[in-house]
């Protein structure tokens, strides 16, 4: 009798301990899953094309408006490229509207297949060193992860970025390059528009912000799409 009581007590205590452990563990995981930010936001299709009546932001308007001469000036072959900056590597990126503020950008190169490598550290953004520095003529490229294998990363909210938002790049020489977002689009990686993203920017200093998007491809374990934000220099 006394034996069985002891045995029963022990079993009861063990059960209590197990209960507590399970509660803590289960509750913790559940809380994390419940409070987890969920899948990253994807760009709205309305953000994918530049606004039709492109406002002054997309054109180097000051150059035109300061010229008092009449409009039919098309004979002049010299093109004015508007605002451009001297080369200087980026050191920080701020996008206030989606609460991005990241310092210590890493250098990104091309891998053996000629593809742009991603930053090794999910909590750091990277700059493609083969391209222009942000502020120079051409498409400067900054890429960052949308998430790690556990938590959101630098560009988690990139898909939420809207046309007209500002992206501010601090540069090594102490100057700041401010860009305005023209559009945000999502592409299957298999149909990545290389020419659009990396091609000629017709004299403008532009910025490309790239991250992952869409669904996870079960075969590769990677996201199937890329989200790309296009922006141009305003000063």
């Amino acid at each position: 009798m006394s034996l069985s009581t002891k045995f029963g007590d022990r079993r009861g205590a063990l059960a209590a301990v197990v209960t507590v452990v399970l509660l803590v563990l289960g509750g913790g995981i559940l809380a994390r899953a419940a409070t987890a930010p969920g899948p990253p936001p994807q760009p709205d299709s309305s953000q994918a094309s530049a606004a039709a009546p492109t406002p002054a932001t997309s054109d180097p308007a000051p150059a035109e408006s300061t010229a008092p001469t009449a409009a039919p000036e098309a004979v002049v072959p010299a093109s004015d490229f508007g605002t451009l900056m001297a080369p200087s590597a980026p050191v920080a990126l701020r996008i206030p509207s989606i609460k991005v503020s990241t310092k210590g950008l890493v250098d990104l190169n091309l891998d053996d297949k000629g593809e742009l490598e991603a930053p090794r550290d999910a909590q750091r953004a990277g700059w493609y060193v083969g391209g222009p520095t942000p502020g120079e003529f051409g498409p400067a490229v900054i890429a960052a992860h949308v998430d790690s294998s556990r938590i959101p990363a630098v560009f988690y909210n990139l898909g939420r970025l809207k046309k007209g938002a500002k992206a501010i790049v601090d540069r090594k020489d102490g100057t700041t390059a401010t860009f305005v977002v023209d559009r945000v689009a999502r592409y299957p990686k298999a149909k990545f528009p290389t020419a659009e993203v990396y091609g000629d920017t017709a004299g403008r200093a532009e910025l490309r912000l790239i991250t992952c998007g869409g669904e996870i491809d079960p075969r590769t374990g990677h996201y199937a799409d890329n989200v790309v934000a296009y922006a141009h220099l305003v000063g």
Binding site: L30, P37, P39, K113, G114, E115, S148, R150, C212
Partner: peptide
Amino acid sequence: SAPSGGVQTGGGGTADNNQALGLALGGGLL
């Protein structure tokens, strides 16, 4: 030459299926 193709910038930690797994696992333990 310009980089070819896209960039692998995701670990998938916040994608749908992981969240569902967390909810299921947590719920099961509870």
